[in-house]
Nucleic acid binder design. Sequence first.
DNA 1: TGCCACTAGTAGACAAGTCATCTATGAGAC
DNA 2: GTCTCATAGATGACTTGTCTACTAGTGGCA
Lengths: 172, 172
Amino acid sequence: MVLSRIILGLLAIAPMTGYDLKRHFDSTVGHFWAADKAQIYRTLARLVADGFAEVEKVAGAGAPDRQEHRVTAAGRAALAEWLSSEPERHVQRDPFLARVFFGADLGADGLRALFASRREEARSQLADFERVRAETAAADRGARLRLATLDNGIAHLRTELAWLEAAEGEFA
Amino acid sequence: MVLSRIILGLLAIAPMTGYDLKRHFDSTVGHFWAADKAQIYRTLARLVADGFAEVEKVAGAGAPDRQEHRVTAAGRAALAEWLSSEPERHVQRDPFLARVFFGADLGADGLRALFASRREEARSQLADFERVRAETAAADRGARLRLATLDNGIAHLRTELAWLEAAEGEFA
DNA sequence: TGCCACTAGTAGACAAGTCATCTATGAGAC
DNA sequence: GTCTCATAGATGACTTGTCTACTAGTGGCA
């Protein structure tokens, strides 16, 4: 559901192919909702089947044909309905914490390695967020809201890094 | 994979029934890895099929029979192997942020409601974390590590609440 | 006596997500 | 000239996760 509505929302900003969507996810929305290629294509197919999106085959000049998807009126209505519906509960699902939970079985070395890998991950994510944030213009209200979601990510990553340092000091 | 290893890890602390596991998840591990009842039972069945756990039927004195699951040696080995393997990547999947991303379509009122519901959710989660944290004794290294995962949750919730206030001030 | 909540487990359908592999084409590298 | 990379799209098999609805016993309460 959420993925299909995100895709609908992105298509409402601009018509796109599955391939475009994948790139878009990886560079922006993917920070809080990743999407697999296979799933994007399947979801697009279902959106079309449900009448929420239309396809337009654009003959590629040499390159493979593009299938541009655009939202229909019904799609916009579905998006609006979802946006105003009760938000889904956010379920944390963090494999790193799952490992820390059993960290005692891991020994000091294992924990150190675990913390180190997470720290690297968080650092590179933080750099990525900050780069994207710097590149994004606060043109209108929509863009400022999207910037806010990036700020949220940045705040959480900083928190995470601070916690990691404290935890490493204590346990590794 | 992660769920099955978490279950293995919990069973390694103490033998349990599926029902016990469900309660355990909801009150502790569930903060960073929720589990559905149906899934717990299925995963337990697979662990048994794979030889990683054993079942012992305990005739309930009046009450329904319990199926106590305990880890086998192979299970402990599988757990150790998982713990020392490359950690899974942490994929954020936050429906709230997905909604904020399209917040411009939502209007100020919709955004206000969205932020308010998240704030309530975060507040009650924070209270829950702090309660559990206060109730948990820092008996040994394992317990201190589990406390650390709670501290991580608390830190993130505080960050979230601060961000929410800032974002609400700006947009709603 | 009937109803409800709790404990304990099971079944089935379905939605969502992952992983690997496949077909094409064009551009540029070697 | 072949090879790799990026573009564009798709499928099959599989695992995970969610939702609903059961069976069945115990104890409390009104």
